[in-house]
Write a protein that binds this DNA or RNA. Structure first.
Lengths: 144, 144
DNA sequence: TTAAAAAAGGACAATTTTGTCCGTTATTAT
DNA sequence: ATAATAACGGACAAAATTGTCCTTTTTTAA
């Protein structure tokens, strides 16, 4: 469904959000450990998210990544996915046609639109805050 | 959403079905032309579909690919996707967790399950016959 | 002011996916 | 029988994605 980069991006953002809620900044090393992702690759993705102002990065000792507390419930999964994978998921044709729309549709156009809208709405309606909800109490997990 | 291989597989099967309805067998070259796909790569995918008994292949002059007429409305997109991409789409976790289930879910487990079930049902309910429906009359397209 | 910490960034490497080439095998029509 | 046709199959090549390494820059704390 999503690229690996995107999966790591979502998990990392979620973990950063969780730490930020507790007022903590967290390092790349810690993040990679907690979401079980390759460190250097994760670094690239975090850079991307930082450049897109989804997360904040601070250099130097006691630096790391964080998210402004009042942003955590405003940032939606859709923004993270868009920053990393672009709009492929939202726009592209299910069968890979360059131009596929209501006027010149592929045979599954309507059906795909329905499913994509579904996915899109879900991503647009899911905030990072919601993502963190079950983590502390062991109801949900970010690795394994 | 799907791999390129899968996209070509669906389009090729649909075109073969369309020709089969008219009692015609069709060649790799013709298929690739009509769905605008790389010929040799398409050949691999057709082999895969033939080995999975989704399409029939006939060697030699006047050979080519076809689908038994009475199978065209029985073959569902889900079978084609499964033959090519396996069950990744149906089974895998949205965030890439190895073990992700109701007991030990990722933070979006439930939401992803809903969307995947949606997709799964759509693929299971869409036959090749249905795929061919609008093609002849120019209501739907397989390329561009 | 210096050493250490931590992100940034560039170059490279491995893997997977996508795509190509070409000889082999089977079948058909002449 | 033979030549032509068309799928089969193996090896290879290109491109994209994923992943690693190492140096540079920024910042902090001692």
């Amino acid at each position: 469904m999503f690229s690996k980069a995107c999966e790591y991006g979502i998990k990392a953002s979620t973990y950063i959000a969780l730490q930020s809620i507790e007022g903590k900044r967290t390092s790349l090393r810690d993040i990679a450990k907690k979401i079980d992702s390759p460190e250097a690759f994760t670094a690239k993705i975090l850079q991307l998210l930082a450049r897109n102002q989804i997360i904040d990065s601070v250099k130097g000792p006691s630096g790391g990544f964080q998210i402004e507390k009042d942003q955590i419930d405003k940032i939606k999964l859709s923004e993270i996915v868009y920053a990393i994978d672009g709009d492929n998921i939202y726009v592209g044709c299910g069968l890979g046609l360059k131009e596929c729309n209501a006027l010149k549709p592929c045979p599954v156009h309507e059906k795909f639109v329905a499913i994509r809208d579904n996915l899109k709405k879900m991503l647009e309606n899911t905030s990072l805050y919601e993502m963190t909800a079950g983590l502390e109490v062991g109801l949900t997990y970010l690795k394994r």
